[in-house]
Simulated assay, not measured.
Amino acid sequence: MEMDFGRYDIVHSALAGFSGLIGIIQKLEHGASYILTEHAIYYKERIYDLVGCGDSYRRFWSMVFRKVSELNYYWADRIVTVSRSNMRWQKELGADEEKIRIIPNGVDVNRFKPISGKADRWSVVSITRIDPLKDIINLIEAMSYVVSEVPEARCYIYGPVTDHRYMDHCEARVGDLGLKDHIKFMGYISNPEMAYNRGWVVVQPSMSEGAPIAVIEAMACGKPVVATDVGGVSEILGDAGILVPPRNPRTLARGILKVLSDEELARELGLRARMRVLREFPMSRIVGEYREIYHDLIRAHGVEGNTSRDLETRSCLKPHSGSDLSLCRS
């Protein structure tokens, strides 16, 4: 089967996975520049997905995923990563350090901002997809310890279900622990800034992350964050939140209780978080850094003219919702 993908000056993939193969083909056939951005390490997260599979199946797909990632790293002209933690993984998987540039995730600080009077005093909020990698069970079990000390505590979990079997497991665990009055699954939300502002504390309980945008969004809303120390989370939080080990519900509960029980600490962490985002993660700064990469590659193609001047309005700098691939066509 032959597929015509057209001809492009720049291909930009958001995964070092199969979608990136289009960029490699365009580079080999038409001389396109290929940009690779990894928010989370594709190979690492696929390995987590293979947990519980048979040995032969796991070995085969582990090899395939690794080779696909290595191909992406080898042929990419620029590799953008969102954290130093990701960079270490990429180098271990063979990426050339000379091609790697760290550009953190950013948020719209005018949309994600504190809203006075919205917080429920004893509310815990988490915005995440319902997926084993996000370790919702960690948060559910932590809430059992929280509720034993603060019976007023309520946890609101927002986000889409990507694994329905895991969702069933989460709901069963809530029932087993007698937490149906304390933990609510709220589903997808189109205005997450309102949910963050509802919380007294925001929690990220994952077992694996790149540099989670949800943590940055919560910080931009002036919320204290309790998060597991995975991926680039510590690079985001700095001294503006509480880090705990992953897969440890008791320690996660202690972090949550620390914020719930100390209003002054909650205010101080929230203020530090907002100021850190304004300084380090405004979307305008992040877009500017990506634009610089695009300009460099366009100049290398010798098509600076109108293409460079019109870059701000072309599809390659617009969000591609639900897609891990964008194309800049000449």
Rank of each mutant, 00 (worst) to 15 (best):
E2H: 14
E2M: 13
E2N: 12
F5G: 00
F5C: 03
F5Y: 14
F5Q: 03
G6K: 05
Y8A: 15
V11H: 04
L15F: 08
L15Y: 09
G17P: 01
E29G: 00
Y34V: 01
I35K: 00
H39I: 04
A40Q: 08
I41V: 15
Y42S: 06
Y42A: 04
Y42K: 01
K44T: 08
E45A: 05
V51N: 11
C53S: 10
C53R: 14
C53A: 13
F60D: 08
S69I: 00
L71T: 03
N72V: 09
Y74W: 14
W75S: 09
W75K: 06
W75R: 01
I79V: 15
V82T: 10
S83N: 05
M87R: 12
Q90P: 05
L93Y: 14
I102G: 11
I102N: 13
I103R: 04
I103S: 08
G106E: 03
V107M: 12
V109F: 07
V109D: 06
R111W: 05
R111K: 15
R111I: 15
F112L: 02
F112E: 03
K113N: 10
P114H: 10
A119M: 12
D120L: 15
D120G: 12
S123P: 06
V125N: 04
I130C: 06
D131W: 07
L133W: 08
L133I: 13
D135E: 13
D135A: 15
M143A: 03
Y145S: 09
V150D: 09
P151D: 08
E152D: 12
Y158M: 04
Y158D: 02
P160W: 02
A172L: 05
R173W: 06
V174I: 15
G178A: 05
L179I: 05
L179T: 00
K184S: 15
M186K: 06
S190M: 05
S190L: 10
M194I: 13
G199N: 02
W200G: 00
S206G: 10
M207W: 11
I213P: 00
A218W: 08
M219W: 12
M219E: 10
A220L: 04
C221P: 03
G222K: 03
P224F: 02
G231F: 12
V233N: 06
I236G: 03
L243P: 00
V244K: 03
R247W: 04
P249V: 12
L252A: 02
R254D: 15
R254C: 06
I256Y: 12
L260N: 04
D262R: 08
E263A: 14
E263Y: 09
L269H: 05
R274P: 09
M275R: 15
M275V: 12
V277G: 04
L278N: 03
R279W: 11
E280V: 07
F281Y: 13
M283W: 06
R285G: 10
E289L: 14
E292L: 08
D296F: 11
I298H: 01
H301F: 07
H301I: 03
G305Q: 07
D310R: 09
L311H: 01
E312T: 01
E312H: 07
E312W: 08
R314D: 08
R314P: 04
C316H: 04
L317T: 02
S321D: 08
D324K: 02
S326Q: 14
L327E: 00
L327D: 01
C328H: 05
R329S: 09
